[in-house]
Amino acid sequence: MTAVAVPVTLVLPQVIDSYTLTVLAIYAMLALSLGLVWGYGGILCFGQAAFFGLGAYGYAIGALNVGESTIALIAAVAATAAIAAVLGAMMFYGRLGDVYLAIITLVVTLILYRFMSSTAGDAYVLGKARLGGFNGIPGFPTLHVPGNPSAYIWGDALYYVCAASLVLVLALVTLLLRSGFGRVAVGIRENETRMGLLGYDVRARKTLLFTIGAAVAALAGALYANWGEIVTPRLFGLTQSAEIIIWCIVGGFGTRLGPILGAASMGYLKFLLGQQSLVDNTLVMGLILILVVLFLPRGLVPALEGLWIAAWQRMPARQMQRRRRNLA
Protein backbone atom coordinates (compact mmCIF):
# COMPACT_ATOMS: atom_id res chain seq x y z
CA MET A 1 0.00 0.00 0.00
CA THR A 2 2.85 2.37 0.85
CA ALA A 3 4.29 1.59 -2.57
CA VAL A 4 1.20 3.16 -4.12
CA ALA A 5 0.98 5.99 -1.59
CA VAL A 6 4.36 7.53 -2.37
CA PRO A 7 3.90 8.12 -6.14
CA VAL A 8 0.34 9.35 -5.52
CA THR A 9 1.68 11.82 -2.98
CA LEU A 10 4.22 13.11 -5.49
CA VAL A 11 1.90 13.29 -8.51
CA LEU A 12 -1.09 14.96 -6.86
CA PRO A 13 0.48 18.47 -6.60
CA GLN A 14 0.56 18.56 -10.43
CA VAL A 15 -3.23 18.33 -10.43
CA ILE A 16 -4.50 20.09 -7.30
CA ASP A 17 -2.89 23.08 -5.55
CA SER A 18 -0.83 22.12 -2.55
CA TYR A 19 -2.75 24.38 -0.15
CA THR A 20 -5.91 22.32 -0.72
CA LEU A 21 -3.98 19.05 -0.79
CA THR A 22 -2.46 19.80 2.61
CA VAL A 23 -5.83 20.00 4.29
CA LEU A 24 -7.04 16.90 2.45
CA ALA A 25 -4.07 14.94 3.81
CA ILE A 26 -4.89 16.23 7.30
CA TYR A 27 -8.56 15.26 6.96
CA ALA A 28 -7.46 11.84 5.73
CA MET A 29 -5.32 11.36 8.83
CA LEU A 30 -8.20 12.44 11.05
CA ALA A 31 -10.54 9.99 9.33
CA LEU A 32 -7.96 7.22 9.63
CA SER A 33 -7.86 7.79 13.39
CA LEU A 34 -11.61 7.20 13.63
CA GLY A 35 -11.33 4.30 11.20
CA LEU A 36 -8.89 2.66 13.59
CA VAL A 37 -10.93 3.23 16.74
CA TRP A 38 -14.39 2.60 15.31
CA GLY A 39 -13.77 0.43 12.26
CA TYR A 40 -11.28 -1.95 13.84
CA GLY A 41 -11.90 -1.47 17.55
CA GLY A 42 -15.69 -1.22 17.42
CA ILE A 43 -15.62 1.85 19.66
CA LEU A 44 -18.44 4.15 18.59
CA CYS A 45 -16.67 7.45 19.16
CA PHE A 46 -18.77 10.42 18.06
CA GLY A 47 -16.28 12.87 19.47
CA GLN A 48 -13.12 12.36 17.45
CA ALA A 49 -13.32 16.11 16.72
CA ALA A 50 -12.59 16.74 20.40
CA PHE A 51 -9.10 15.28 20.04
CA PHE A 52 -8.58 17.00 16.70
CA GLY A 53 -9.45 20.32 18.34
CA LEU A 54 -7.38 19.62 21.45
CA GLY A 55 -4.38 18.80 19.26
CA ALA A 56 -4.82 22.09 17.39
CA TYR A 57 -5.33 24.18 20.53
CA GLY A 58 -2.53 22.31 22.29
CA TYR A 59 -0.18 23.16 19.45
CA ALA A 60 -1.18 26.84 19.36
CA ILE A 61 -0.85 27.27 23.12
CA GLY A 62 2.41 25.34 23.22
CA ALA A 63 3.95 27.21 20.28
CA LEU A 64 3.11 30.60 21.78
CA ASN A 65 4.67 29.61 25.08
CA VAL A 66 7.86 27.91 23.91
CA GLY A 67 8.19 30.01 20.73
CA GLU A 68 9.11 26.89 18.79
CA SER A 69 7.21 24.17 16.91
CA THR A 70 8.82 20.76 17.56
CA ILE A 71 8.19 20.67 21.30
CA ALA A 72 4.75 22.23 20.81
CA LEU A 73 3.79 19.50 18.35
CA ILE A 74 4.96 16.67 20.61
CA ALA A 75 3.39 18.23 23.69
CA ALA A 76 0.05 18.73 21.91
CA VAL A 77 -0.11 15.09 20.92
CA ALA A 78 1.03 13.84 24.33
CA ALA A 79 -1.38 16.05 26.29
CA THR A 80 -4.32 15.04 24.12
CA ALA A 81 -3.41 11.37 24.47
CA ALA A 82 -3.29 11.77 28.25
CA ILE A 83 -6.75 13.36 28.30
CA ALA A 84 -8.09 10.59 26.05
CA ALA A 85 -6.57 7.94 28.32
CA VAL A 86 -8.39 9.37 31.34
CA LEU A 87 -11.68 9.76 29.47
CA GLY A 88 -11.33 6.30 27.93
CA ALA A 89 -10.52 4.65 31.25
CA MET A 90 -13.58 6.26 32.84
CA MET A 91 -15.83 5.00 30.05
CA PHE A 92 -14.41 1.53 29.59
CA TYR A 93 -13.81 0.70 33.24
CA GLY A 94 -17.28 2.10 33.97
CA ARG A 95 -18.62 -0.53 31.53
CA LEU A 96 -20.52 2.01 29.51
CA GLY A 97 -22.67 0.63 26.69
CA ASP A 98 -21.99 1.58 23.06
CA VAL A 99 -24.77 4.13 22.85
CA TYR A 100 -23.77 5.89 26.07
CA LEU A 101 -20.19 5.99 24.89
CA ALA A 102 -21.27 7.63 21.66
CA ILE A 103 -23.32 10.19 23.57
CA ILE A 104 -20.61 10.95 26.12
CA THR A 105 -17.91 11.46 23.52
CA LEU A 106 -20.21 13.79 21.61
CA VAL A 107 -21.16 15.69 24.76
CA VAL A 108 -17.50 16.14 25.69
CA THR A 109 -16.91 17.65 22.25
CA LEU A 110 -19.82 20.05 22.61
CA ILE A 111 -18.72 21.05 26.11
CA LEU A 112 -15.28 21.88 24.72
CA TYR A 113 -16.96 23.90 21.99
CA ARG A 114 -19.03 25.84 24.51
CA PHE A 115 -16.08 26.33 26.81
CA MET A 116 -13.63 27.49 24.14
CA SER A 117 -16.27 29.88 22.77
CA SER A 118 -16.62 31.53 26.17
CA THR A 119 -12.94 32.23 26.82
CA ALA A 120 -12.83 35.78 25.46
CA GLY A 121 -11.99 37.46 28.78
CA ASP A 122 -8.63 38.29 30.34
CA ALA A 123 -9.14 35.44 32.81
CA TYR A 124 -8.50 32.86 30.09
CA VAL A 125 -4.78 33.10 29.54
CA LEU A 126 -2.41 30.13 29.58
CA GLY A 127 1.10 31.51 29.93
CA LYS A 128 1.58 33.70 26.87
CA ALA A 129 -1.50 32.37 25.09
CA ARG A 130 -4.92 34.07 25.23
CA LEU A 131 -7.64 31.56 24.43
CA GLY A 132 -9.58 34.31 22.69
CA GLY A 133 -13.13 32.95 22.88
CA PHE A 134 -14.98 32.64 19.62
CA ASN A 135 -12.20 34.33 17.67
CA GLY A 136 -9.72 31.66 18.71
CA ILE A 137 -5.94 31.94 18.81
CA PRO A 138 -4.08 33.49 15.87
CA GLY A 139 -0.45 34.43 15.41
CA PHE A 140 1.38 31.47 16.91
CA PRO A 141 4.72 30.30 15.48
CA THR A 142 4.10 27.75 12.73
CA LEU A 143 6.05 24.64 11.83
CA HIS A 144 9.76 25.09 11.20
CA VAL A 145 12.76 22.84 10.67
CA PRO A 146 13.58 21.32 14.09
CA GLY A 147 16.35 23.33 15.73
CA ASN A 148 16.06 26.21 13.28
CA PRO A 149 13.08 28.44 14.25
CA SER A 150 13.60 30.80 11.32
CA ALA A 151 13.31 28.08 8.65
CA TYR A 152 9.52 27.94 8.37
CA ILE A 153 7.84 25.04 6.63
CA TRP A 154 4.93 26.31 4.55
CA GLY A 155 3.33 26.01 1.10
CA ASP A 156 4.55 22.97 -0.84
CA ALA A 157 6.91 21.97 1.96
CA LEU A 158 4.03 21.84 4.47
CA TYR A 159 2.11 19.65 2.03
CA TYR A 160 5.00 17.19 1.82
CA VAL A 161 5.33 17.13 5.61
CA CYS A 162 1.60 16.42 6.00
CA ALA A 163 1.56 13.82 3.23
CA ALA A 164 4.64 12.10 4.64
CA SER A 165 3.05 12.12 8.11
CA LEU A 166 -0.07 10.53 6.65
CA VAL A 167 1.93 7.80 4.93
CA LEU A 168 3.89 7.20 8.13
CA VAL A 169 0.75 7.02 10.26
CA LEU A 170 -0.82 4.67 7.71
CA ALA A 171 2.24 2.41 7.86
CA LEU A 172 2.17 2.42 11.67
CA VAL A 173 -1.56 1.68 11.77
CA THR A 174 -0.97 -1.19 9.34
CA LEU A 175 1.76 -2.60 11.57
CA LEU A 176 -0.44 -2.19 14.63
CA LEU A 177 -3.32 -4.04 13.00
CA ARG A 178 -1.06 -6.90 11.95
CA SER A 179 0.37 -7.21 15.46
CA GLY A 180 -1.14 -9.30 18.22
CA PHE A 181 -2.61 -6.15 19.76
CA GLY A 182 -4.42 -5.29 16.53
CA ARG A 183 -5.79 -8.77 16.02
CA VAL A 184 -7.03 -8.87 19.59
CA ALA A 185 -8.66 -5.45 19.08
CA VAL A 186 -10.58 -6.85 16.12
CA GLY A 187 -11.57 -9.84 18.27
CA ILE A 188 -12.93 -7.42 20.87
CA ARG A 189 -14.87 -5.59 18.18
CA GLU A 190 -16.40 -8.91 17.15
CA ASN A 191 -17.24 -10.19 20.63
CA GLU A 192 -16.18 -8.37 23.74
CA THR A 193 -17.62 -10.89 26.18
CA ARG A 194 -15.89 -13.80 24.50
CA MET A 195 -12.54 -12.03 24.53
CA GLY A 196 -12.98 -11.40 28.26
CA LEU A 197 -13.78 -15.08 28.75
CA LEU A 198 -10.55 -15.92 26.94
CA GLY A 199 -8.66 -13.88 29.52
CA TYR A 200 -8.09 -10.60 27.69
CA ASP A 201 -8.47 -7.41 29.70
CA VAL A 202 -10.95 -5.75 27.38
CA ARG A 203 -11.15 -2.48 29.34
CA ALA A 204 -7.39 -1.86 29.28
CA ARG A 205 -7.08 -2.74 25.61
CA LYS A 206 -9.98 -0.52 24.56
CA THR A 207 -8.56 2.35 26.61
CA LEU A 208 -5.21 1.95 24.87
CA LEU A 209 -6.70 1.78 21.38
CA PHE A 210 -8.90 4.80 22.11
CA THR A 211 -5.80 6.70 23.27
CA ILE A 212 -3.81 5.78 20.16
CA GLY A 213 -6.71 6.97 17.99
CA ALA A 214 -6.85 10.23 19.92
CA ALA A 215 -3.10 10.75 19.49
CA VAL A 216 -3.44 10.38 15.71
CA ALA A 217 -6.37 12.81 15.68
CA ALA A 218 -4.31 15.24 17.78
CA LEU A 219 -1.42 15.06 15.31
CA ALA A 220 -3.88 15.86 12.53
CA GLY A 221 -5.17 18.75 14.66
CA ALA A 222 -1.69 20.16 15.28
CA LEU A 223 -0.93 20.03 11.55
CA TYR A 224 -4.29 21.67 10.86
CA ALA A 225 -3.36 24.54 13.17
CA ASN A 226 -0.25 25.06 11.03
CA TRP A 227 -2.22 24.96 7.84
CA GLY A 228 -4.90 27.38 9.02
CA GLU A 229 -2.51 29.53 11.10
CA ILE A 230 -5.41 30.05 13.52
CA VAL A 231 -7.41 27.76 15.81
CA THR A 232 -11.07 28.48 16.66
CA PRO A 233 -13.79 26.68 18.64
CA ARG A 234 -15.33 25.59 15.33
CA LEU A 235 -12.86 22.68 15.42
CA PHE A 236 -15.03 21.22 18.19
CA GLY A 237 -18.29 21.96 16.37
CA LEU A 238 -21.07 19.55 15.54
CA THR A 239 -20.33 19.95 11.82
CA GLN A 240 -16.74 18.83 12.29
CA SER A 241 -17.80 15.85 14.47
CA ALA A 242 -20.38 14.72 11.93
CA GLU A 243 -18.11 15.17 8.93
CA ILE A 244 -15.48 12.75 10.25
CA ILE A 245 -18.11 10.04 10.65
CA ILE A 246 -19.57 10.77 7.19
CA TRP A 247 -16.11 10.48 5.57
CA CYS A 248 -15.63 7.07 7.18
CA ILE A 249 -19.10 5.79 6.30
CA VAL A 250 -18.74 6.90 2.66
CA GLY A 251 -15.23 5.47 2.35
CA GLY A 252 -15.98 2.34 4.34
CA PHE A 253 -15.33 1.40 7.96
CA GLY A 254 -13.27 -1.72 8.55
CA THR A 255 -10.67 -0.72 5.95
CA ARG A 256 -7.72 1.65 6.21
CA LEU A 257 -8.06 3.06 2.72
CA GLY A 258 -11.79 3.77 3.08
CA PRO A 259 -11.59 6.58 5.63
CA ILE A 260 -8.58 8.10 3.84
CA LEU A 261 -10.24 8.17 0.44
CA GLY A 262 -13.60 9.10 1.94
CA ALA A 263 -12.09 12.11 3.70
CA ALA A 264 -10.00 13.22 0.72
CA SER A 265 -12.83 12.93 -1.82
CA MET A 266 -15.55 14.42 0.37
CA GLY A 267 -13.16 17.14 1.50
CA TYR A 268 -12.29 18.01 -2.10
CA LEU A 269 -15.92 17.97 -3.11
CA LYS A 270 -16.71 20.35 -0.28
CA PHE A 271 -13.94 22.62 -1.49
CA LEU A 272 -15.31 22.59 -5.06
CA LEU A 273 -18.85 23.21 -3.88
CA GLY A 274 -17.59 26.05 -1.73
CA GLN A 275 -16.48 27.89 -4.88
CA GLN A 276 -20.02 28.18 -6.24
CA SER A 277 -23.32 29.30 -4.77
CA LEU A 278 -25.77 27.37 -6.94
CA VAL A 279 -26.23 24.39 -4.62
CA ASP A 280 -25.82 24.20 -0.89
CA ASN A 281 -22.90 21.95 0.02
CA THR A 282 -24.42 20.39 3.16
CA LEU A 283 -27.32 19.29 0.97
CA VAL A 284 -24.99 17.56 -1.51
CA MET A 285 -22.97 15.94 1.30
CA GLY A 286 -26.17 14.66 2.90
CA LEU A 287 -27.40 13.31 -0.40
CA ILE A 288 -24.13 11.44 -1.01
CA LEU A 289 -24.26 9.98 2.47
CA ILE A 290 -27.82 8.74 1.96
CA LEU A 291 -27.01 7.25 -1.44
CA VAL A 292 -23.97 5.43 -0.09
CA VAL A 293 -25.82 4.11 2.95
CA LEU A 294 -28.65 2.86 0.73
CA PHE A 295 -26.68 1.38 -2.15
CA LEU A 296 -23.21 0.65 -0.79
CA PRO A 297 -23.92 0.07 2.91
CA ARG A 298 -20.35 -1.03 3.58
CA GLY A 299 -18.88 2.02 1.85
CA LEU A 300 -16.97 2.70 -1.36
CA VAL A 301 -13.72 0.86 -0.72
CA PRO A 302 -15.28 -2.46 0.39
CA ALA A 303 -17.62 -2.27 -2.62
CA LEU A 304 -14.66 -1.78 -4.99
CA GLU A 305 -12.81 -4.61 -3.25
CA GLY A 306 -15.85 -6.81 -3.83
CA LEU A 307 -15.75 -6.00 -7.53
CA TRP A 308 -12.03 -6.65 -7.68
CA ILE A 309 -12.37 -10.01 -5.98
CA ALA A 310 -15.28 -10.95 -8.23
CA ALA A 311 -13.11 -10.15 -11.24
CA TRP A 312 -10.52 -12.63 -9.97
CA GLN A 313 -13.15 -15.26 -9.29
CA ARG A 314 -11.43 -17.77 -11.55
CA MET A 315 -8.20 -17.71 -9.61
CA PRO A 316 -7.25 -20.85 -7.70
CA ALA A 317 -8.68 -20.74 -4.19
CA ARG A 318 -5.35 -20.46 -2.45
CA GLN A 319 -4.18 -17.45 -4.41
CA MET A 320 -7.54 -15.81 -3.73
CA GLN A 321 -7.12 -16.34 -0.03
CA ARG A 322 -3.77 -14.60 -0.04
CA ARG A 323 -5.11 -11.74 -2.13
CA ARG A 324 -8.07 -11.27 0.16
CA ARG A 325 -5.82 -11.15 3.19
CA ASN A 326 -3.59 -8.55 1.58
CA LEU A 327 -6.57 -6.40 0.83
CA ALA A 328 -7.98 -6.63 4.33
Binding site: V186, G187, R189, E190, N191, T193, R194, L197
Partner: peptide, 12 residues
Amino acid sequence: IKTQVPSVMDGL
Protein backbone atom coordinates in the same frame (compact mmCIF):
# COMPACT_ATOMS: atom_id res chain seq x y z
CA ILE B 1 -15.66 -20.97 30.04
CA LYS B 2 -18.61 -21.40 27.69
CA THR B 3 -21.74 -19.41 28.47
CA GLN B 4 -25.33 -20.49 27.79
CA VAL B 5 -25.63 -18.17 24.79
CA PRO B 6 -23.12 -19.29 22.14
CA SER B 7 -20.34 -16.74 22.04
CA VAL B 8 -17.82 -16.72 19.20
CA MET B 9 -16.33 -14.10 16.88
CA ASP B 10 -18.82 -14.36 14.01
CA GLY B 11 -16.99 -12.02 11.66
CA LEU B 12 -13.72 -13.97 11.89
